[in-house]
Write a protein that binds this DNA or RNA. Structure first.
Length: 547
DNA sequence: GTAGGGTTAG
């Protein structure tokens, strides 16, 4: 195609390497057309590969590709790779079909790895196996890249026997093929085999070390993970992230923090591991503090970090901070429409008391799922807006969403906070009969709270008596609080003595019982209870009662 | 004659 043309394309290729925006690609495309290179496969292939670095540019790459009169295999592969990385399996498959239907685009060893990777990402066993058959027809199954991607595919789909078979038949294996096999075993929960592969590997790189450590972390074997972590010949930030994540998962944030400090090259993902660890372990103040430290170190947060920070803020219920974060999110170029971002924003605003903002965000969500509905309902519950909560709950049902046990916990909480007894009963029945959800101790606690708060103490007591004793101490505590609220001394005595049996080491029930006696001027009983308490070695812990 | 592909982390 390029016979006799002046050597003008290399400068365009140089330009392409530094190009990353649509505007920039458009300008170069104009140049290509202007110089008459639009059918130069070599140049266009470079152009398309450069263009296929983001989803937004993929459409443009496709347009440019379509203007080429006669695309060769390499050009098809560039386009296909872009679709596999930034689009869906189905759109990649239509490119693949078009390629096979064309006269020049014969699939080769470069065609299949991206396609198989796409099948692994979508865990599409059916398509993946079909493609495996096809690639044998094209005679590329001996290629090490093709083989590795197949091992990875079967491993990710938990078809470990097939992964082993492909791995065993590979004529050449390299460190990537071995690592794919290792990851496959980890995926199937077989750490022993994974370790066997790790020990047998002729060569290891950082990725293989991290994959093995990640395996231990995923399956909760933190000691083995740490032992291997200390043996890594050269750690990188990924190794630290994996290990910190492991500590966070088992709640050991002190060790996580220690490793975090030790890692010198902190990147965004490392900060994220620390911050989300704090947020998920109920340490919201530390999460927010670390977030501020991160900003201080000139690291710009991304949406993953912001979701963690918003969850932390929701936990502390700090309205001022919530407003700050909210306006920061709007000012910066975050996409507030993305499901998990929007859900976190709604949840934070609802929990911190800005219900108006929460409502408007909620109604502007492109798709409201069960979680976002529950955040909103929970927000109403926290602010005693039971009627709104119930309205929203029925809205959710009419949208066809299937409530789960958490949704019912939330709506029952809303009913109890607003003393909506009949509605609560009705929903409790609906949960059991219509949705076949067996009430958990939590659900019972909500019902006891609902009945107790609204003064139906006997009904609450009867319901509680009908349950097995185990797992319901929280409900007994709830009822005790209600008895105290309604000054029912007789029932308090009964419930508190029951609770003393259930949790003989909990000072709270003793304290409550003695308080009730005190309020009724029964000072002799007060001193008996206090003596019992001291006799058991219990002291009153400040702020530990239920009322 | 050139170009295009596979593994770890939130």
């Amino acid at each position: 195609m390029r016979h006799g043309l002046p050597a003008i394309s290399p400068p365009i290729i140089t330009l392409l390497k530094s190009c990353n925006t649509l505007r920039c690609f458009e300008q170069i495309h104009v140049q290509i057309i202007h110089k008459g290179f639009e059918h130069d496969n070599y140049l266009i292939s470079n152009f398309i590969s450069g263009c296929c670095t983001s989803f937004s540019l993929l459409r443009y790459a496709t347009t440019v590709f379509n203007s080429v009169s006669c695309a060769n295999t390499c050009l098809w592969n560039s386009l296909l790779n872009g679709h596999c990385n930034y689009s869906s399996l189905s759109s990649s498959l239509s490119v693949f079909s078009a390629m096979r239907a064309s006269s020049e685009g014969v699939p080769d060893k470069y065609t299949f790895p991206p396609l198989i990777k796409c099948c692994s990402n979508e865990l599409d066993v059916f398509v993946g196996v079909g493609i495996h058959g096809l690639l044998i027809k094209y005679g590329v199954e001996d290629n090490v890249f093709v083989g590795s991607s197949l091992v990875d595919f079967y491993g990710k789909c938990k078809l470990i026997g097939d992964a082993q078979k492909v791995f065993g038949e590979m004529p050449d294996r390299n460190v990537v093929s071995w690592t794919c096999m290792l990851v496959g075993y980890v995926n199937c929960g077989d750490l022993v085999s994974a370790r066997r592969v790790f020990d047998a590997m002729p060569k290891r790189n950082r990725v293989s070390w991290n994959a093995m450590i990640c395996g231990y972390v995923k399956l909760g074997e933190l000691n083995s993970a740490r032992k291997l972590f200390d043996e890594i010949p050269s750690k990188n930030v990924h190794s630290y992230t994996t290990m910190i994540d492991g500590y966070a998962k088992c709640g050991d944030m002190a060790s996580a923090r220690f490793l975090f400090e030790e890692c010198l090259a902190k990147d965004l993902v490392l900060w994220s591991a620390l911050i989300s660890g704090y947020a998920q372990n109920g340490l919201p103040k530390e999460a927010v503090k670390s977030f501020q430290e991160m900003q201080f170190s000139n690291t710009r947060p991304d949406e993953h970090i912001m979701v963690s920070v918003m969850s932390a803020c929701a936990q502390v219920g700090n309205l001022e901070l919530a407003n700050e974060i909210d306006s920061y999110m709007s000012r910066s170029s975050f996409d507030l429409q993305r499901t998990h971002v929007a859900a976190a924003l709604v949840d934070m605003n609802a929990k911190c008391g800005n219900m108006e903002r929460a409502m408007s965000l909620f109604h502007n969500m492109p798709k409201r799922d069960l979680v976002s509905y529950c955040s909103m309902i929970h927000g109403h519950a926290l602010h005693g807006q039971g009627t709104e909560a119930i309205k929203l709950f029925y809205n959710m049902l009419s949208e066809g969403l299937m409530p789960d046990d958490v949704a019912f916990t939330v709506i029952l909480t809303a009913c109890s906070h607003a003393a909506l007894v009949e509605e609560g009963y009705c929903l409790f029945d609906m949960m059991k009969s219509k949705y076949s959800i067996t009430p958990s101790p939590n659900h019972y606690a909500c019902m006891i709270d609902l009945l107790g708060r609204s003064g139906h103490l006997e009904a609450a007591y009867d319901l509680l008596k009908s349950l097995s004793v185990e797992n319901h101490s929280e409900s007994w505590g709830t009822l005790l609080g209600a008895c105290r609220l309604h000054c029912d001394t007789d029932l308090t005595e009964v419930v508190a003595s029951r609770l003393v049996e259930l949790e003989p080491c909990n000072a709270g029930s003793f304290v409550l019982l003695s308080n009730v006696y005190a309020a009724a001027d029964r000072w002799l009983d007060v001193s008996i209870v206090r003596k019992q308490m001291i006799g058991r070695g219990l002291r009153k812990i400040p702020g530990c009662s239920w009322v």
